[in-house]
Computed example of a mutant assay.
Amino acid sequence: MTNPMRGVFAVPTTPYTEDGDQNLDALGGRIEEVLAAGVSGLLGLGATGEALALSAAERQAQIKTIVSAVDGRAHVAIGCMAYTPAEISAHISDAAGWGADAVMVTPPFYGGLEPDAVIAALRPVLTTSELPVMVYNNPHSTGTDLLPNHLAALQDTGRLWSVKETSGEPTRIRELRSRLGEDTDIFVGADGIALEGFAQGASGWVAASAWLLPEHCQRLWELADSGEWAGAVELWRSLGQALGLIEGDSAFISLIKQALGRRGREQGPVRPPLPTADPEALAALLDAIAGLERTHTA
């Protein structure tokens, strides 16, 4: 793998069989289709992948499936979400041993930690990491908003590959780019503001929606990355509507899974306690996708 770790990283859902087991065959098949769209990488075992609902054995099986299916054709990053630094580091060691290229970590959740405490917890994780690390700033889920100055304090570890930014603050990506410079990549993590993030200098996009609409998400990135802003804006008028419906729904994981199922790529249900998307929300999303495909051929 020679291309840099930037661009679109699609985030897989975890398909399940009717019996509730992981459907690794479905996962591998969808990976082939997503890679054909030209994405730079996959980020497995994120929140979209229901990582916290999986057993240790299921995690291991999924990572092995992703790495094997990708087979060096794109980058593989693995979410390593846990409460204690020791658990996070153990997940990172496992991901490295199973062949991942990079990992993503979050602040310890539920503790209501102040940013300085989070940085103190993550410092030993990054310092000892065998792999490049993406730090996921998701204050809506973790309760902690890591500002550019906080994240800059991790750059001296030599392992801060990137930041996935999902605070929703309108100028945050520009601020991160200004503070962290070019040595740390900045990824848009909120699908509904992807184009705005690209305009502010993002290095790429960690996109749950790219599991559903990989060709269109990849095309948006290519247009923006090459400075073809008129084309990017035109595509975004339709793509952004679909992505906004996904991102604005608390049952977005179910929505992605159901939409894929309607398109012949069965993903099964979500695991409780995650909510199931309403039929009306699914119908609205499918209408938006149909409109996108009428006006923009992937």
Score class of each variant (00 low, 15 high):
residue 2 T to H: 07
residue 5 M to L: 04
residue 6 R to H: 04
residue 9 F to P: 07
residue 10 A to P: 11
residue 12 P to Q: 00
residue 14 T to D: 09
residue 16 Y to M: 13
residue 17 T to I: 10
residue 18 E to F: 08
residue 22 Q to E: 14
residue 25 D to M: 06
residue 26 A to M: 02
residue 26 A to I: 06
residue 26 A to L: 01
residue 32 E to S: 11
residue 32 E to D: 09
residue 34 V to K: 11
residue 36 A to V: 03
residue 36 A to L: 09
residue 38 G to L: 09
residue 40 S to R: 07
residue 40 S to G: 14
residue 40 S to T: 13
residue 42 L to A: 10
residue 42 L to V: 02
residue 46 G to R: 00
residue 51 A to L: 12
residue 54 L to T: 01
residue 55 S to H: 10
residue 55 S to Y: 08
residue 58 E to N: 09
residue 61 A to E: 11
residue 62 Q to Y: 04
residue 62 Q to L: 13
residue 64 K to G: 07
residue 65 T to K: 09
residue 67 V to I: 08
residue 68 S to E: 15
residue 68 S to I: 05
residue 71 D to C: 05
residue 78 I to H: 06
residue 82 A to P: 03
residue 89 S to I: 02
residue 91 H to L: 14
residue 92 I to E: 00
residue 92 I to P: 05
residue 95 A to Y: 01
residue 99 G to K: 02
residue 102 A to H: 09
residue 105 V to E: 06
residue 105 V to Y: 00
residue 106 T to F: 04
residue 108 P to L: 03
residue 110 Y to Q: 09
residue 111 G to P: 06
residue 112 G to L: 10
residue 113 L to S: 12
residue 113 L to W: 10
residue 114 E to Y: 12
residue 117 A to D: 08
residue 119 I to C: 04
residue 120 A to D: 15
residue 121 A to R: 09
residue 122 L to Q: 03
residue 129 S to C: 14
residue 129 S to N: 11
residue 130 E to A: 15
residue 133 V to W: 06
residue 133 V to Y: 01
residue 134 M to R: 01
residue 135 V to P: 02
residue 138 N to C: 14
residue 138 N to M: 08
residue 140 H to L: 08
residue 141 S to P: 00
residue 141 S to N: 10
residue 144 T to G: 03
residue 150 H to D: 11
residue 151 L to F: 01
residue 151 L to S: 05
residue 153 A to K: 02
residue 157 T to P: 01
residue 160 L to R: 00
residue 166 T to A: 14
residue 167 S to R: 04
residue 168 G to T: 05
residue 169 E to V: 11
residue 169 E to Q: 13
residue 169 E to R: 14
residue 173 I to A: 00
residue 180 L to S: 03
residue 180 L to R: 02
residue 180 L to F: 13
residue 182 E to S: 15
residue 182 E to D: 15
residue 183 D to N: 14
residue 184 T to G: 04
residue 185 D to A: 11
residue 186 I to D: 03
residue 190 A to I: 10
residue 196 E to W: 06
residue 200 Q to W: 06
residue 207 A to T: 07
residue 210 A to M: 10
residue 210 A to R: 04
residue 212 L to H: 09
residue 218 Q to N: 13
residue 218 Q to T: 11
residue 219 R to M: 13
residue 220 L to D: 00
residue 220 L to F: 08
residue 224 A to R: 05
residue 225 D to T: 09
residue 226 S to C: 15
residue 227 G to F: 12
residue 230 A to G: 10
residue 230 A to I: 15
residue 233 V to A: 01
residue 236 W to K: 01
residue 238 S to Q: 13
residue 239 L to G: 02
residue 239 L to W: 01
residue 241 Q to T: 13
residue 247 E to V: 12
residue 249 D to G: 07
residue 250 S to L: 14
residue 250 S to I: 15
residue 251 A to Q: 10
residue 256 I to L: 15
residue 256 I to G: 04
residue 257 K to I: 12
residue 259 A to N: 12
residue 263 R to A: 14
residue 264 G to H: 05
residue 266 E to Q: 14
residue 266 E to P: 06
residue 266 E to R: 13
residue 267 Q to C: 15
residue 271 R to Y: 11
residue 274 L to D: 05
residue 277 A to N: 01
residue 278 D to W: 07
residue 281 A to W: 00
residue 282 L to Y: 00
residue 284 A to T: 05
residue 285 L to C: 00
residue 285 L to D: 01
residue 286 L to M: 12
residue 288 A to K: 00
residue 290 A to I: 04
residue 291 G to F: 11
residue 293 E to K: 13
residue 293 E to A: 09
residue 298 A to M: 11
